[in-house]
Computed example of a mutant assay.
Amino acid sequence: MTETLHFTAGDGARIAYRLDGPEGRPVLVLSNSIATTFHMWDGQVAELAKSFRVLRYDFRGHGGSDAPAGAYSLDRLGRDVLELLDFLELARVHFLGLSLGGFVGQWLGVHAPERIERLILSNTSSHLGPASYFDEQIRNVLSASDLSATADMFMRNWFPPSMLADRNETVEEFRSAILPMSPQGLAGCFAAVRDADLRRPISLITASTLVIGGEDDKVTLASHSEAIAAAIPGAELVLLPGVHLLNVERPAEFMNAAMRFFQAD
């Protein structure tokens, strides 16, 4: 099964998802960054599908999912995942979340521990501020005539100067994918990040956890990864040379860290 499918969440929003890999294998859920779609993981799926049934989905407000009006909450984004798992009759899964996907992974680890086997939290934070920064981003995306300035901001945050200096096909693909996105969807997810604070609750996470951070990440700083790993009992920390979308910038090192963790006894 390789086509994009949809299910309807509890509040009526249609959420796009895709399954890759043979049935019967352990399920690995991939959750991506704000302003990307599940295609963010295209470079990893073939290898992951050798070991897992890979489940990807688009956040509400992104890609093939609906973009309801109003601010979204981390609680709602987490429940979208739980309702998707219920819809697919998946009792327990592995979860790999990057950036906003890592926020969702932390929420799931706290609120639905019985559903999460192994957990990877990549390039993420338990709290990002100040709130005024996200309020400004929300105003910008809702008032702009197009998303080109927003796309440029994300490119600077996601990729190293070496990839931005000259025309880079990968960077262009990610930038082009932002331009047709729903401003309301981006604003809704900005609000979810603005309002999220998991700094204290994540000490309750019991899943075996790997935290991956970028040494040069400009948004979810390496210190944020260190704080998460310190707060979650028994968590492992790996810092890689790179910025934010480590699965894209450093795919070999990223996959080596992830697979070593998933295959550990």
Score class of each variant (00 low, 15 high):
37 T>S: 14
217 D>Q: 07
14 R>H: 13
84 L>R: 10
261 F>E: 03
153 M>I: 06
265 D>H: 12
247 N>F: 02
19 L>H: 10
158 W>G: 11
150 T>Q: 14
84 L>M: 14
232 I>D: 00
89 E>Y: 10
172 E>D: 15
205 I>S: 04
202 I>K: 05
124 T>L: 04
99 S>Y: 08
47 E>R: 14
167 R>A: 12
165 A>Q: 15
180 P>H: 10
170 T>L: 15
41 W>D: 08
193 V>P: 08
150 T>W: 15
77 L>P: 06
30 L>K: 11
245 L>K: 03
184 Q>T: 14
16 A>M: 10
42 D>C: 02
258 A>F: 01
7 F>N: 12
50 K>D: 03
215 E>I: 05
74 L>W: 01
250 R>L: 00
176 S>G: 12
260 R>S: 13
85 L>K: 09
249 E>H: 02
44 Q>F: 01
225 S>D: 08
73 S>A: 01
214 G>C: 06
62 H>R: 07
114 E>I: 05
176 S>Q: 15
92 R>M: 02
190 F>V: 02
148 S>V: 10
213 G>R: 07
69 A>N: 07
36 T>A: 10
101 G>K: 11
118 R>W: 03
158 W>L: 11
27 V>L: 07
41 W>H: 01
3 E>P: 13
237 L>G: 08
253 E>V: 01
34 I>L: 15
33 S>V: 02
42 D>L: 00
151 A>L: 08
80 D>I: 03
139 R>T: 14
175 R>T: 07
96 L>S: 12
214 G>K: 07
253 E>A: 15
171 V>T: 08
244 H>V: 02
194 R>H: 06
15 I>T: 11
158 W>C: 11
202 I>F: 06
116 I>Y: 05
259 M>W: 05
170 T>Y: 03
220 T>W: 00
107 W>F: 11
119 L>H: 09
191 A>M: 01
10 G>Y: 13
59 F>Y: 13
134 F>T: 05
85 L>M: 11
110 V>H: 08
195 D>M: 06
54 V>K: 02
179 L>S: 11
141 V>M: 11
106 Q>C: 09
34 I>Q: 06
210 L>H: 03
24 G>H: 04
83 E>P: 05
34 I>W: 03
238 V>C: 09
201 P>W: 01
57 Y>W: 14
143 S>T: 15
130 P>A: 03
237 L>Y: 09
59 F>R: 00
215 E>W: 09
30 L>I: 09
253 E>H: 00
107 W>V: 00
225 S>T: 08
161 P>R: 07
184 Q>F: 01
64 G>P: 07
246 L>A: 05
79 R>P: 00
19 L>P: 10
258 A>W: 02
36 T>K: 10
67 A>G: 06
137 Q>L: 15
167 R>Q: 13
135 D>P: 04
225 S>G: 13
143 S>I: 03
185 G>N: 11
223 S>E: 15
248 V>W: 05
80 D>R: 00
164 L>K: 11
57 Y>M: 05
20 D>P: 03
90 L>K: 10
216 D>N: 13
81 V>F: 07
225 S>Y: 08
198 L>R: 06
184 Q>K: 15
26 P>E: 13
104 V>I: 15
54 V>C: 03
19 L>C: 12
119 L>N: 08
187 A>P: 12
118 R>G: 00
140 N>Y: 01
250 R>K: 12
15 I>C: 12
80 D>P: 04
207 A>M: 03
222 A>Y: 07
